[in-house]
Design a protein around this nucleic acid. Structure first.
Length: 576
DNA sequence: GCCGTTTTCGGCCCGACTGTTTTCAGTCG
């Protein structure tokens, strides 16, 4: 059982307790425990063995014991008891935007609804509006919520798919008959959401490899096990397809199965002009009907007169043309990133102490890290008042004396409905790095929202705008903005736009990055928005997004060494 | 249920917003 699985159980317990209207603080305790475990670098099993589980912030005596039971027995009595009272299916209702514990409870108790299908049916029959606390508008909102939820449901987040795929690949690598193995499909292109998990491998003994694959631990269902393809469902419900080819056509197959469809079409067009034909089996000379190559991707691209194209670019958005002209970007990589510029600590709503954040930063090889705790107006996130700012500043100063990783004193401001900010400029001037973000008031008009952000950018102390469009993948649409105007002004005021690397945000998204850079020359910064030390590993998703947005190291603030970073940040203050 | 430079008991996260209301409940962050 993985940490994320344990976290899921704790989250389910929290939801059940909420539906049962138990002490809200207890509900939150379970949520906090879940969040502490999700993304915790060490496996719970190891923590248990070392007796360190209770040392994790947010996990006390009671939850530690329950987790222990879950790990050792594979089930938890308390959880099973709760399931008797709250059918697990009801929890799914709470995944729908605008449906929380109270509405889920009413829906279940009054109308006997426990599935999304039943809910939709009740909406069609206009039954919801008859319930106390529901009305016509709510009915409509929930219906829209269901559509959004379903659309998000069809695809899974990259952050869910990637770790599982990597784990399976590691296991297969350990099997003797496996020669080569790689991710393929949208997973290899690092798309923000993934339809199927595709893995490609080469071997001389396909049947044996497929047998090994279908018999991996945690496989709950085998959908197919033939000569060229094995398909399984894992315990957590994720499906993985393994395709098996010979070594001779591995490169061609990898190219073909990585896609995208549009990219492959563009390649085939070039091939045709050269009297060649590309398929998953190789590159062929049409006239002679003979295979020319196909063992490596480099060969396939090379024979077309192209350099190898990095998978994140393979979306049919001009990469083939750029490659032909030798104008492919030198993409930013994880190793270019010198620090995380958006991390929350226990001084607002994060779960990690500054010491832990510094330690992880060291492990990641960073030069610096910016603590961007929430500002005072965001009470819900324990936004820092002036005293807390003072206290945090003292800790930062003392830690900075002996630390190789420099801690930047940052803040994530809240852009109010009128575009004003939490503190006076006098206070803002104390910070090394200032982000301003919208956290509420999403229902304003496009113009109002745009003006809000523009006003925040005009402030000489605001270095960056956080999660600009506010989307939550599968849960919340981006709010309407005049992006052209914002990009233009961001560039003019030298305000950096965040590439928020939290897996369900990835905001700005890849397409906007490319657009903002090409059309307006915008600059960006990468931040994980981590609320726990383990979440700092989300940087890879932000970097992938940057790559998919064609960004180079020079486009990104935190590829700069500390001194240059500080100079860049100083520029706006002295200029505006 | 967790946690402690006020506390081992008694606090914890509360403001904005929407839709349902006519003074408030539920959701979201």
């Amino acid at each position: 059982m993985k940490n994320d699985d344990v976290a899921k159980v704790l989250e389910n317990i929290a939801d059940m307790l909420a539906i049962l209207e138990k002490n809200p603080f207890r509900v939150r305790a379970y949520l906090r425990a879940a969040s502490a475990i999700r993304g915790f670098p060490t496996e719970v099993k190891i923590l248990l063995e070392e007796g360190k589980l209770k040392e994790v912030r947010g996990i006390g005596e009671s939850i530690a014991l329950k987790i222990q039971e879950l790990i050792e027995k594979g089930s938890m009595g308390y959880y099973e008891e709760l399931k008797e009272k709250v059918p697990p299916a009801v929890l799914e209702l709470m995944e729908i935007p605008h449906v929380g514990p109270r509405k889920a409870k009413v829906l279940f108790e009054e109308l006997g609804i426990s599935t999304v299908d039943e809910l939709l049916e009740a909406i069609e029959k206009r039954k919801l509006r008859t319930l106390k606390g529901f009305g016509e508008k709510m009915e409509k909102k929930i219906k829209e919520g269901i559509l959004l939820y379903r659309r998000g449901k069809e695809r899974i987040l990259l952050s869910e798919a990637l770790p599982l795929a990597e784990e399976v690949i590691e296991k297969l690598k350990g099997y003797d008959e496996v020669i080569k193995i790689d991710k393929a499909g949208s997973l290899r292109r690092m798309k923000e959401t993934i339809g199927d998990i595709d893995i490609l491998t080469s071997t001389d003994k396909p049947r044996e490899v497929i047998k090994f694959f279908t018999e991996l631990p945690r496989v709950s269902q085998v959908l197919a096990a033939g000569e060229t393809k094995g398909s399984v469902v894992f315990e957590n419900g994720l499906q993985i397809d393994l395709r098996v080819v010979s070594s001779f056509s591995y490169g061609a197959a990898l190219q073909y199965f990585t896609g995208s469809k549009e990219h492959n079409i563009a390649l085939r067009e070039i091939a045709r002009k050269k009297k060649l034909k590309i398929s998953e089996y190789g590159v062929f000379d049409i006239k002679k009907g003979r295979k020319i190559c196909g063992e490596s991707e480099e060969e396939v691209y090379g024979i077309l007169g192209l350099p190898w194209i990095p998978p994140p670019l393979r979306e049919g958005k001009g990469e083939v043309e750029a490659a032909l002209k030798g104008e492919l970007p030198r993409l930013v990589g994880e190793s270019d990133i010198r620090g995380d510029l958006h991390v929350h600590s226990i001084h607002s709503d994060g779960s990690a102490r500054i010491e832990e954040i510094v330690k992880i930063s060291e492990e990641l090889g960073y030069e610096y890290v910016a603590l961007c705790d929430h500002a005072q107006r965001l009470k819900v996130a324990r936004g820092m008042g002036l005293e807390e700012i003072e206290r945090r500043a003292e800790i930062i100063e003392s830690l900075n004396r002996n630390s190789s990783v420099k801690i930047l004193s940052g803040i994530e401001l809240n852009i109010e409905n009128d575009g004003s900010l939490d503190y006076l400029n006098e206070v803002l001037s104390q910070f090394d790095f200032v982000i301003a973000s919208i956290h509420w008031g999403f229902d304003q008009t496009k113009n109002e929202l745009t003006q809000r952000i523009l006003r925040a950018m005009e402030n000489p102390y605001v270095h960056g705008i956080g999660h600009l469009t506010g989307r939550i993948i599968g849960k919340r649409e981006p709010y309407p903005l005049n992006l052209e105007e914002i990009f233009k002004r961001a560039s003019e005021t030298e305000t950096y736009l965040e590439i928020n690397s939290f897996p369900d945000r990835l905001d700005l998204k890849d397409e906007y990055l490319k657009y903002a850079k090409e059309e307006y020359g915008c600059k960006f910064f990468l931040g994980t928005d981590a609320h726990g030390a383990g979440q700092m590993s989300y940087m890879r998703y932000g970097v992938a997004t940057a790559q998919r947005g064609w960004l180079e190291p020079d486009d990104i603030l935190n590829t700069l060494p500390l001194k240059k970073l500080k100079e860049s940040l100083e520029r706006k203050r002295t200029k505006v």
